[in-house]
Amino acid sequence: MFLLKLILNRLVQTLMTLLIVTTLTFAMLAAAGGDVLNTLSADPLASAATVQQMRHIYGLDQPLPVRYWRWLEHTVRGDMGESFYYHAPVSRLLFPRLLNTMMLALLALFMAWSVALTLGMMAARRVGSWADRSCEAIILLASSTPRLVLALVVLALASQFSLLNFGSGAALSKAANPVNRSSSWLQIVLPAVVLAVPLMALFLAQVRDGVRQALREDFVMVARAKGLRERDVLFRHALRAALNPLITIFGYSLGGVMSGSVIVETILDWPGLGALSVVAVQSRDVPLMLGIVIITATAVFAGNLLADILLHLNDPRLRQNDQRHRSVQSVATR
């Protein structure tokens, strides 16, 4: 029952957000003026009549609210229009790219989690140990290395040791046919590593602090007094108690992963949504851009929802206390 309410709540919120963002984009379009045919109208070979005709074909001569309404109507039915740049349905362009980006993101999340858990547990076990101190240094370095910088360094190293066989063109020329490429496992591992490093720092800091705090609690002392193995104390009791903020942070990190994938995919030439969004903005392809925003935002919201559900499954207190928690909050608000 509660979960149903949560899902409904989130669904409404997602739809509202998407509505606001797409409306704003359309409104800004009006404020800025100009459209995809601007470059064409500068071309002396295209007469004004031709441009006008093309505007009519694309529906660009309609007033903005009408365009927005028409676009919305089609999108609700699952038809996101046609890309100006690729001359193909947006939805058909998006889905293979979405799969690629999700593959990359999942690999990055897996890497970040596994490294963060291993190092974090090692660090939390003994405060002030060498593992703890090196973790601190790793967190500082990893969290202040921007993905842009890291991706370029990786690119430089890859070109130095000729690890990747890039085509002659960059992401732009390959964007049209993402499937047709030489596949090498490094082609996905390198961008995934770059995507994972800042995430790893975030998770590592959280694991270390959370587990360290949990190890001070009474139930850990009881578990130890019972004679449980240290491994069980750590993983069954301390980690479980420290899991809540980890799940929340996982949810919040998804937006960052999507933002990061734009730059990482462009630099390291991975045919995902991020690289596609760069093409879309450079060619001012509004239907494609809107489609990307919608699908990315939906993916992020879905991830947040998943995090919320996991949170409620992990922690019975949240389920029980929900009603009480609310009333306390409302007192605080007044």
Partner: peptide, 25 residues
């Protein structure tokens, strides 16, 4: 706060790119 939550969940760079697409290159 709902609006703020929505803004926080959105991927920043993608939204900025989308907004940027509305302006001349």
């Amino acid at each position: 706060m709902r609006v703020a939550d929505a803004m926080m969940a959105l991927p920043v760079l993608v939204v900025v790119l989308a907004a940027r697409a509305a302006f001349p290159l």
